[in-house]
Design a protein around this nucleic acid. Sequence first.
RNA 1: GGGCCGUUAGCUCAGUGGUAGAGCAGUUGGCUUUUAACCAAUUGGUCGAUGGUUCGAAUCCAUCACGGCCCA
Length: 491
Amino acid sequence: MSDEQNVTQEENRLIAERREKLAAIRAEGNAFPNCFRPNAKAQELQDKYGEHERDALEELGIEVAVAGRLMLDRKSFKVLQDVTGRIQIYATKEVQQDTRHWDIGDIVGVKGKLCKSGKGDLYVMMDEYVLLTKSLRPLPEKHHGLTDTEQRYRQRYVDLIMNENTRKTFQIRTKLIQGIRQYLVERGFYEAETPMLQVIPGGATARPFVTHHNALDLDMYLRIAPELYLKRLIVGGFERVFEINRNFRNEGLSTRHNPEFTMVEFYQAYADYHELMDLTEDMLRTLAEQLLGGTEVQYQGQTFDFGKPFIRMTVFESILHHNPDITAEELNDIEKARAVAERLGITLRDADGLGRIQTEIFEETVEHKLLQPTFITAYPTEVSPLARRNDEDPFVTDRFELFIGGREIANGFSELNDAEDQAERFRQQVAEKEAGDLEAMFYDEDYVVALEYGMPPTAGEGIGIDRLAMLFTDSPSIRDVILFPHMRPQA
RNA sequence: GGGCCGUUAGCUCAGUGGUAGAGCAGUUGGCUUUUAACCAAUUGGUCGAUGGUUCGAAUCCAUCACGGCCCA
């Protein structure tokens, strides 16, 4: 594309007209004044005075100063939008004449008497008014707003200006994170910040992003999880820690995956996975009540009840429960289980053991059916390299995952604090990596050393904030709850 | 990576082979307590890109780009 074509696209007539208006404003003085201080917010005025009678309001003679973006212009009545909502401003004929250079999208400040119109709506009389920022680009259509998904994600600022629902979604997301932080802090958890740049990307099985540290001439990885560092803090004696921050996984993009996503991870010494399941259940219930005003979560036409006790069953039980045609005997025999998996169209590697095969069968046939909040427990040791083995059955670990709406929301377990067992599990992961599993873990020698100093018995958990935000905001795509989701750059 | 769908004015969308349309926004004027204000007039387009078929392509075909949904 030539520069000239670019200019005609970027600088169309509508923008050119506004630039001319801006040039005229510049010629008369400061085009970007920062002199106006609002003393009221639109929605607060609506809440406080919306129900007043017209005459009663007149008698009060309230003077207010409001500022915001011009969203509608009915000439005499104009609509101003601030962070809280909208309020009308009223222009007499003279004021209309004086503000002819104002456009929809401009940022303005208005001072004057708070009044009520004949139809009962509040407005601010434009006794004093100032154009604070000229908007050079026209806003989308006033009624339909911005609906083009691509543009909503690429130009989130326009989406936020135009769509109240988008603003609301991100307000709920923020409250969700604040609620989780408050919940944990109230229970004695310390908030920690551990490295995002790691030499050994540990704590999960996932492909990492690679970067390079110039001064050290060292390849580093963006973290896939904070887990191993948070547990070092447990070794250090913190006993209860948490971190809310981004993880990075070098995987595809979908309605459920963004390469960077937000997790809360927390670790509690002298607790086991049962206590974390209880805590999780209570926390989600508390958050639902705080944010949604009740324990029923409406999601895409379904209702998830956070008020009832969450279902709990093992991986093994859940497979049998949801697959009447599979027997316990088949699941317990590696050759028979392999045949079941292959019948289901699951691709297995030769090195995959029974635990991995069972897990694959679970993911294929059960996960998506777990609509109501469900804890699945007893994940095979083979697929849980950081989790404590079950005392009675070392084939499985004391681990759970929480599913809601068919999606994994949380993953937690009693932590493996046996340094020698951990070293052996890492060796097994390295063998899998060498056999071609790109997601297998690295051997983290220092983490084993940390465990050798002694980590108290501990339980830990990670909760995917984005997926939880999807549930709480009834959003079908993870992109709807991430302010700036990743997209392929435009051509 | 595969399948299906989409891409037309700043925005929301019509337009299935014969002169590129509407609403909103913009511009000009009118009205002046409106509620997506209203009335009149009016500006604005390489129809995602590149090839092809055709007398003629927004429309049919191919390739590519970007996006959406589903699958892997």
